[in-house]
Design a protein around this nucleic acid. Structure first.
Length: 418
RNA sequence: GGAGAUGUGUCCGAGUGGUUGAAGGAGCACGGUUGGAAACCGUGUAUAGGUGCAAGCCUAUCUAGAGUUCGAAUCUCUACAUCUCCGCCA
């Protein structure tokens, strides 16, 4: 959420940002609604001040055993007027809040303006793509040869996009998750956190999934709850509605969760095997920092995610997303894409974003600075990493000519021979 | 799922329907005292919106929403949360 005062004073800037992010929020309409709301607020305040004043007088008179019936009669109609003004104010507030929830975050000045993923910038590449002496298989074939997955039965039980990991496939998945968690805890100083998979609508609004991404999420309507698309949601909301003490910052959390995505409208696109799923596993890093720190911390988090790929010795490239590809709530996003030789393409395994104070405003996450002033924190998050495409990359990069595959060195401790 | 109790500020904890944004503590901050500290003394200690150059003033907020009333932290209803007991259960 942006500051209303900021929108009011920088309308053109915000309009440009909306356009560059391929969003539709109507800024002129919001400014109108804001004015209407302030007028309603003023009218209500005036009437209420009158009532408060006279009610006090009535109280005094009664205390002195004087007759106050004149004043009481005089106030009889005011109560109803206040009720009406209050209703007007509530309506104006609701309309304004609904509208402002659709205004995206401003992209940072360094974010390249662009329409789609074709305009993303490659920042750097790491690792050497392996020269194969044979035609590399893709992960579905390797998984089949080694009985790692049972996608058919997953589809039978739940539907397509709900994979079943079997035997070594399940062990590898579990080893990878534990390795990544431990790595961030031991080498990067994160605190592990385990969070709910179902959250309420307020939390989804707080991180910016609602209202825009409603159709991309699974909803348990009976209980008015949503399955999380990422652990970012419950972890970032950890401090929602709170004012942190000055020395509470920074905070760094890492957590594993299942992630659930409806992927509405993306049927048939890059769906082979584990490429695009309705349910998958992910280790997520979340940071709460002082506003002055967030840009430095964004680079740190990118490094934290890269370290996992380096440890696994998987070639990758780092992209800075253009405005059109940067998510609604983000001010700047980097993607990490791992090289998959079987598929012969790069696959996104991590997205690292600085939200600045956008989520903090929505979720009301604040802190008291050194001068005792209350300010919004900055929030950041990044995958570290999502497992499915990391597994794809491991299988395809570590495959042997006979269809078997090697276990990355760093995972061996997590996969004792049985 | 059933029965009951509770929900006040950073925390604890008062609060008879009428100058209560809220007593009193604790904590914290600053100042005094001290060689330094503890103890002690003094002062300060919410958030949001509006208005003003500013001091300030107005409005809202005692879990949330609705109701009764000229007036609600206080009375009524609903929801939510916590605790206790019973039931069920990994």
């Amino acid at each position: 959420m942006l500051d209303l005062k900021f929108i009011r004073e920088n309308a053109e800037l915000v309009k440009t940002a909306v356009k560059n992010k391929n969003e539709k929020a109507d800024i002129d309409k919001i400014i109108e609604l804001d004015e209407a709301k302030r007028i309603a607020q003023f009218n209500f305040d005036q009437k209420k001040a009158e009532q408060n004043k006279v009610s006090k007088e009535i109280g005094l008179k009664k205390k002195n055993k004087e007759d106050a019936s004149d004043l009481i009669n005089q106030m009889a109609s005011v109560a109803q007027e206040i009720k009406d003004l209050k209703a007007e104010l509530t309506d104006a507030e609701t309309a304004l809040n609904d509208a402002i929830m659709w205004v995206p975050n401003l992209p940072h000045a360094d974010v390249p303006v662009g329409k789609s993923e074709d305009d993303n910038q490659v920042i750097r590449e790491w690792g050497k793509k392996r020269d194969f002496t044979f035609q590399p298989l893709d992960h579905v074939e390797i998984a089949e040869k080694n009985a790692l997955l049972d996608l058919e039965r997953g589809a039978k039980i739940s539907g397509s996009g709900f994979p079943i990991h079997t035997g070594m496939g399940a062990r590898l998945e579990r080893a990878l998750i534990n390795f990544m968690l431990d790595y961030h805890i031991l080498h990067h100083g994160y605190t592990e956190i385990m969070v709910p998979s179902l959250v309420n609508p307020t939390s989804m609004k707080g991180t910016g999934q609602l209202p825009k991404l409603k159709d991309d999420m699974y909803c348990v309507s009976e209980d008015d709850m949503y399955l999380i698309p990422t652990a970012e949601v419950p972890i970032t909301n950890f401090f929602s509605q709170e004012i942190l003490k000055n020395d509470a910052l920074p905070q760094k959390f890492v957590g594993f969760s299942n992630c659930f995505r409806r992927e509405a409208g993306s049927y048939g696109k890059d769906t082979r095997g584990l490429q695009r799923l309705h349910q998958f596993n992910k280790v997520e890093m979340v940071r709460f920092v002082h506003p002055e720190e967030s840009w430095k911390v964004l680079e740190e988090m990118v490094n934290d995610a890269e370290d996992i790929l380096k440890a696994l010795n998987l070639p990758y490239r780092l992209l800075r997303l253009c405005t059109g590809d940067t998510s609604f709530a983000s001010a700047m996003t980097y993607d990490l894409e791992v090289w998959a030789p079987g598929a012969n393409k790069y696959l996104e395994v991590s997205s690292v974003s600085n939200f600045a104070d956008f989520q903090a405003r929505r979720a009301s996450i604040r802190f008291r600075d050194a001068d005792g002033k209350v300010q919004f924190v900055h929030t950041l998050n990044g995958s570290g990493l999502a497992t499915p495409r990391t597994i794809i990359a491991i299988l395809e990069n570590y495959q042997n000519a006979d269809g078997s595959f090697e276990i990355p060195e760093v995972l061996k401790a997590y996969l004792p021979k049985i």
